[in-house]
Design a protein around this nucleic acid. Structure first.
Lengths: 208, 208
DNA sequence: ATGATAATGGACATTCTGTCCGGAATTTTC
DNA sequence: GAAAATTCCGGACAGAATGTCCATTATCAT
């Protein structure tokens, strides 16, 4: 009577995802082989290829699940938590704290050890978040919306990476403060010399 | 009398670097095998491993050469070209134009297709540039110098990537203007709502 | 010119990849 | 409940890439 929910398949996929996560923490993504994964998961060779086309497909599938979970969690809490309706960087505080809590996983995901695919997926997820937050506050102007989104996401990942690599001891709130300062006000406040926004006339046409 | 300059070795290395560059343009870095490279270069298997430990070593070697060339070129032109003694972003204009000129190579290097190694090497080179430019104008403050450098480099790469992927038609000067605007003044000028730098008290201790 | 040094190229064992088919477990049907 | 149909599982297989080894060949020093 229950539809073909294939319990076996679900079990297999779960085992593979778990193995991937475990091994990524141990060796990083690029260094992994399909052989390693099916060994760790104790799954047969063809079973793996029956579900995924390769390790990249498995990784993407994991992020796909994650994205759906996030989407649900987001629609469940409409717009109450966090000061989101006038703060264009509302995501950052919670995100830095989240990163601190799951530091191991974040390290393996972003530090180059995660590979291009991982970084790209994370970039997509963050881009979606930032785009929504920015859509309300961003004023149509000289700079394309998409450019701003990428700028913010890039700055966030840069901050995260710097934090983990160079100053793991800092508190999330401290990194968050530096991140917000740079992204909101730019370099101007931290530059000594006399310079006002004199010689950057901003792009004229072609706004997104 | 001439030192052991090993003409043969030089020829071999040149052929390998050339082959790597050609193939990276055609297939991207990750998809390349050592087999492909030695085929393209018409070089024997063990010859390759006599010189490099793998394709990653070959790639790094190429960047090593590039970095030395840049270092020489830089010391040759002390501080005249470009307004560098009070512009903290003096590198950007020339760099965007350079990127436009050699768009093919830049695309393969940064667009994820270049792989983590490539991006990391480029990041190192740019970091060195930015660090020097910033050292003169950056005021010791609440934000560690290194964080600022990474922020600028990240923003530059983001801009470059966005340019190539989304608006290849823009002029270097236009992208440069947007880049400078965001990095120097941040999001504030492009945000509608009322918000002053009210709730980011900036990190207190531990400056670099 | 001749011996010493170093680069070269092909062969080899090992490992990984992606596919195929027989066996086993689960769902459906009676 | 039991048997058929469907689907998943696991080991075997060919093809390809990796990194190493050694005999051969070209270059350098004397």
């Amino acid at each position: 009577m229950p539809r073909g929910i294939d319990r076996r398949a679900a079990r297999t996929r779960k085992a593979l995802h778990q193995a991937l996560l475990t091994l990524m923490l141990r060796k990083g993504y690029e260094a992994l082989s399909v052989q390693d994964i099916i060994d760790e998961a104790d799954i047969g060779r063809s079973t793996f290829y029956a579900h995924y086309t390769g390790k990249e497909d498995l990784l993407r599938s994991g992020f796909q699940m994650l994205r759906e979970e996030l989407k649900e969690a987001q629609s469940a809490v409409p717009a109450t938590a966090g000061a989101s309706h006038d703060d264009p960087l509302g995501f950052s505080t919670a995100m830095f704290e989240h990163a601190a809590r799951y530091a191991d996983h974040f390290r393996t995901m972003i530090g180059g050890r995660g590979g291009a695919v991982t970084e790209n997926e994370i970039r997509l997820i963050l881009s979606e978040m930032v785009r929504q937050e920015l859509s309300s506050t961003l004023r149509d102007g000289t700079i394309p919306r998409d450019f701003v989104v990428q700028f913010v996401v890039g700055a966030f990942l840069t901050a995260l990476n710097w934090w983990f690599e160079r100053k793991p001891g800092l508190l999330p709130s401290q990194v968050d403060a530096m991140f917000r300062s740079l992204v909101l006000d730019g370099l101007s406040p931290v530059i000594g010399g006399k310079h006002r926004s004199a010689d950057h006339p901003a792009a004229s046409r072609d706004a997104d």
